[in-house]
């Protein structure tokens, strides 16, 4: 899937994804952190329920939508990882009120 090149210094960041602990590196976007952790599809579409994963990594495709710290439909590629961040993949339509 995606693997890390060796790097000199690396400050790690601890997140949870759908309740499971995931380690990322400082400077990662949430999308990069998910891909590095082997999580490809981050949501299913509201129209057909098809699985989708990041496509452009630059904030234009809106495929990488996840719920971050309780707020839904956030672009994972634009959000920088932070210690304690709670990420949830999105199934179909966003839950009401989130």
């Amino acid at each position: 899937m995606f693997q890390r090149l060796k790097r000199s210094e690396a400050r790690t960041v601890s997140l949870s994804v759908d309740g499971r602990p995931v380690t990322a590196f400082s400077g990662d976007s949430v999308a990069a952190a998910l891909l590095a952790a082997g999580i490809l599809a981050c949501r299913t579409t509201p129209v057909s329920g098809a699985p989708r994963a990041p496509y452009c990594m630059m904030g234009v495709c809106f495929e990488c939508l996840v719920t971050i710290d309780g707020v839904g439909s956030r672009q994972a590629c634009l959000a920088r990882v932070r210690d304690g961040m709670r990420i949830e993949t999105q199934q179909g339509r966003r839950e009401a009120g989130r």
Binding site: M1, F2, Q3, A32, Y55, M57, M58
Partner: peptide, 25 residues
């Protein structure tokens, strides 16, 4: 083209530059 695992070359470059990540497999 919407299947997970299909991305742009630009996306791969961004992952490389920002996170030192490369595709495997």
């Amino acid at each position: 083209w919407t299947l997970p695992g299909v991305m742009t070359c630009g996306a791969a470059q961004i992952l490389l530059k920002s996170s030192g990540l490369v595709a495997s497999g």
